[in-house]
Design a protein around this nucleic acid. Structure first.
Lengths: 165, 165
DNA sequence: TATTATTACGTTATAATATTGCAATAGGAG
DNA sequence: CTCCTATTGCAATATTATAACGTAATAATA
């Protein structure tokens, strides 16, 4: 499952083994440092999310947990996801009612997601300019932004190339 | 139900009767012009959405439809909502799994929503700058945006004033 | 170590949101 | 009128998410 050396992430080629390993290690270190319990279920869910750069629904995760020998009632998945999201290891993609592993952990961020409608990969980007812009115009019109969700749907370059026009 | 002369919209005072009436009339005219069937259920759902500047869930709408003597199976609401969204009369707020009437109909737009966590009003704004920004940076990183969802959660000024600090 | 508080887990049940499929019907185009 | 298509009625079901509550594990304090 984790053998592929290089797949598309954020629509770029990269060494996914390294990507996966670094993220898991960073999560472990962060949990150690902050006295968070990186329990088997939480770890497994993060591993699953990291296995591809796609969003997985809670019930898909539940299936995969079951296959891996974990208990499989909905709360098992939702609790693990809640932990991962709260601590910045994963994000919920509202449009898809699904979850992706965070690829920018550690940096305080307000991410923008690019969702390819064809390959369904999800890339996380950090766009300070857009966020600042938004905050300023909101402020001007009498609204104080506390959190922003930005999700873009479209096609990545490699999928665009294969499209029938 | 529609008697209040002036309520908060987009966190601004306005004549809501006029707001409501204009929107309904514009919808009617648009449907006439484009040969769209503005059926009783569709009309009623738009009326409900326009009654306040808040997002209503599909099942809330269903309750209100029932009260108004309509049939009340889920597809009744979902079909009407689908029609309204497709034709730009309403938008789905993904964060809330709920729907709001569009306040910028006619203008081709990619809206940004400001959701007050206290009064729950939802304001729709048009932010060409942010969208352009986003498109450009996406383009640069090899992604072609087709649709963008921007939803900000926060507090409006009048709610902020009443908050205990 | 014993006691208490807190956090996480196991389990059952149910709530909330959304869709599918198919038959019946209404309205417009020819 | 007749055909065609869009819409509606209806039943069932799929998908996503949470509530409630007892037990087990861990941490904090005495």
């Amino acid at each position: 499952m984790y053998k592929t050396k290089t797949i598309s992430i954020a629509f770029k080629q990269h060494n996914h083994n390294a990507c996966w390993g670094n993220a898991m290690q960073a999560a472990q270190e962060y949990c150690d440092k902050h006295k968070l319990k990186f329990t088997p279920a939480r770890r497994k869910v993060l591993e699953l999310l990291l296995s591809e750069h796609r969003a997985l629904g809670a019930y898909k995760i539940l299936d995969l947990l079951r296959e891996a020998g974990f208990k499989s009632q909905p709360p098992v998945a939702y609790r693990a996801l809640e932990f991962l999201v709260e601590n910045g290891f994963a994000h919920k993609i509202e449009r898809l009612n699904a979850f992706v592993a965070c690829t920018l952990h550690g940096t305080e961020h307000s991410p923008t997601f690019m969702i390819c409608r064809q390959c369904e990969n999800v890339a996380e980007t950090y766009s300070p300019a857009s966020n600042l812009n938004l905050s300023e115009s909101a402020e001007a019109s009498g609204f104080k932004i506390e959190q922003t969700i930005i999700e873009a749907r479209g096609v990545c370059n490699s999928c665009a190339k294969t499209e029938i026009l």
